[in-house]
């Protein structure tokens, strides 16, 4: 399976995401923001970082990059898309996911190994988890405070579209401790924590990130 990883100007974690795809048995395909081709990939990861320097709002300018037109179009047709951190912000700005990410309520950058609960396994990126599984994933952001109006939050909760929830502490003030959400079809998922950093025992506090990619690849990991 060929998994594309988009690099915008200011993206940081594209290399880690490409490596995570490879370690989990996929074929990584680098994608460039200024190209309007996805080169026929089977899925797309929008990685973390500070695209366009976070100018205007996080993800606001990246959302209009040439590559995003095709990502939005193909996501609408069912292409699996995972947005990680800045990628999550881009997906919200692109209206592929509801809500928005604002500055952390504690006004500091947060970097920690974060416990999460997997709230739905009915998405392209969470099928390899057990329902309600508790995992640890690296979290690092200054603007990870997920907000949406009350009606949208209720709709997400009622439809089981809250994909991940923070456990122990809410690190940024996100409404209902929401760490990640999915679209109605379940092919598009965005979250603030970084699963691509939890695929290698040398550097990760867990290997729980592998299951994101295993979900996509439809194979079990040891």
């Amino acid at each position: 399976m060929r998994v594309g990883v988009v690099t915008f100007p200011g993206t940081l974690d594209d290399t880690d995401a490409l490596r995570a795809v490879r370690l989990c048995g996929g074929q990584p395909v680098p994608l460039w923001h200024a190209s309007d081709s996805l080169h026929g990939v089977d899925a797309v990861v929008l990685p973390g970082g500070f695209s366009y320097g976070d100018y205007l709002r996080c993800g606001a300018i990246a959302r209009f990059a040439p590559v995003m037109g095709e990502v939005v179009r193909q996501a609408g047709a069912g292409l699996p898309v995972l947005g990680i951190c800045n990628g999550f912000q881009v997906l919200c700005e692109a209206h592929l996911l509801p809500g928005a990410l604002i500055r952390n309520d504690r006004r500091t950058f947060v970097c920690r190994d974060q416990r999460l609960r997997v709230e739905t396994v009915d998405t392209a990126w969470t099928g390899a988890f057990a329902p309600g599984e508790e995992i640890v994933i690296a979290l690092k952001n200054g603007e990870g405070n997920y907000q949406a109006d009350a009606a949208t939050v209720k709709q997400l909760e009622d439809a089981g579209r809250v994909a991940f929830r923070y456990l122990d502490v809410n690190p940024n003030g996100s409404v209902n401790d929401i760490a990640g959400v999915a679209n109605a079809a379940g092919n598009v998922v965005g979250l603030m924590p970084h699963p691509e950093h939890n695929v290698d025992p040398l550097t990760g506090a867990s290997l729980d990130g592998r299951k994101f990619f295993a979900s996509l690849l439809g194979q079990l990991v040891g």
């Binding site: 604002i102 500055r103 309520d105 006004r107 907000q147």
Partner: peptide, 13 residues
């Protein structure tokens, strides 16, 4: 401007 019901951490700082 941030909507009135949205927390404004910069304004608070």
């Amino acid at each position: 401007m941030p909507k009135p019901e949205i927390l404004d951490p910069q304004g608070k700082a």
